[in-house]
Design a protein around this nucleic acid. Sequence first.
RNA 1: GGUCUCAUCGUCUAACGGUUAGGACACCAGGUUUUCAUCCUGGCAAUCGGAGUUCGAUUCUCCGUGAGAUCACCA
Length: 476
Amino acid sequence: MIRTRFAPSPTGYMHVGGVRTALFAWLLARQGNGHFILRLEDTDQAREVAGADEHLMRSLKELGLTYDEGPDVGGDYGPYRQSERLDIYKKWALKLLESGRAYVDPYTTEEVQAFREQAQAEKRAFLYRHHRPETLSTDWDGSKPLRFKSDPKEYRWTDAVMGDRQTGPEVIDDFILIKSDGFPTYNFAHIVDDAEMQITHIIRGQEFLASTPNYLNLYEALEITPPVIASVPPIMNEAGNKKLSKRDGAKDTLEYIHEGIPLPAFLNFIATLGWNDGTEQEIFSVDELIAKFSLDRVQSSGARFDERRMQWISGAHIREMDIESLYNATSRYWPEESDAYDDDYKKSVLGLIQERLKKYSEIPELTRFFFIDLQINHELISSHKQLKKLETTELIDILTQAKTALENCEWSTEKIQDCLNELLESTGQKPAVLFSLIRIATTQSPASPELAGSLAVLRKDRSLSRISTQLEALSQ
RNA sequence: GGUCUCAUCGUCUAACGGUUAGGACACCAGGUUUUCAUCCUGGCAAUCGGAGUUCGAUUCUCCGUGAGAUCACCA
């Protein structure tokens, strides 16, 4: 059974890079009958942000990346917060002490820092093990850091995303297992936890690729068979020169959802940022992602976060939705003015704007004129490339004829269209003049959906009264 | 600086060593009875550079160049 995990440290909100590793892990688990597990890596007390854990859990749920085991849902392999697993790390640390693969670090922070600076001055990579004491103390009372006694050697391994890897012994070093505050480091804790929790696939950012040989060394010392390791590339900023970060305007992921990017569209976008199924398909449902995702088709180089592509994917998903589910998804985005109208009315409005909707938060600006009468905007006529050439008297004449014709019109989209077509003939006007004028009179908006449909939804009396209002304004 | 990694249109990407290097987004132009959007048609646009292997290289090798990661009592 596949068991994957998402293991963030609760130091802030959920960023897109995190969502992607979580999504990949989730997809893998959902492909089979697997489990997706949330583990909170809260071993750095200094960096911890209050409430970040709650926010993380809420984010995963809102993103639909539901986990089968985790701090708030339990599971057979808990606890799922590292801060509550200190005794487990201690047990494994003692095992290493016994087997002679761990020792007490005798140096102070300052001394280690001096070694490091010396190495830097000599333009060498810093290796702690070059300063490893002759006789190693295993008398560990917890007040000093506990270090791993590494066994430097060459490694060849296969990363599920990056392919075959090879490194020499020079990258292997004695790293800290347990800090002097009693908490384990990531390097130690994640290996113990993944083993204890029987994780089968580790999916994490590429920044851990360089330290993977060290982990392999530790796996050996602990006699653990390593899981499948997949190092996914970072998501880059718009300029493409570094990881997307808050400074580049990386938003809390929930903001995208709250702006009304449909969830499947957002997951589609994130998944295809560095992954494709080898075909020319661009739009995937969540079920399709689950069915088709595979680690070996994940790109090995970083991809940039392109909001325009996200907008397009979002619009594409919205266009494919049926009106009922779209209406349900948009319930909290309708403007206040719409409160007085019933569901059927709003659904017909939604049907008219569906094809131009890129995200739900655009609903108010796209629909306002369906709910309230907007003020006459003279600019719409004066800046219109056809209408501005006409005298006001001509405009009044055309609009008056239109009003008369529509008054005698049966009120359905089809019938209105027929009336408009007849009107084209009887007035001898171009569509660009006649339709624009009626459209402006009835919507007072620079853009609106197709005319006959809009009039039908607006109802007859309201359409006609708006035309009258426009006529009055023109007459003044 | 050491070590490691990555490199195809502006962007996301496809291409058993043999393709006019394909698709999508974006952009531009035209079309669909008005606007915006959709949809359709067309256009622009790429293998980082240099050697080598090969009949043939985007693909394999090497050297550059550029970018990234890592070298924490952070994860």
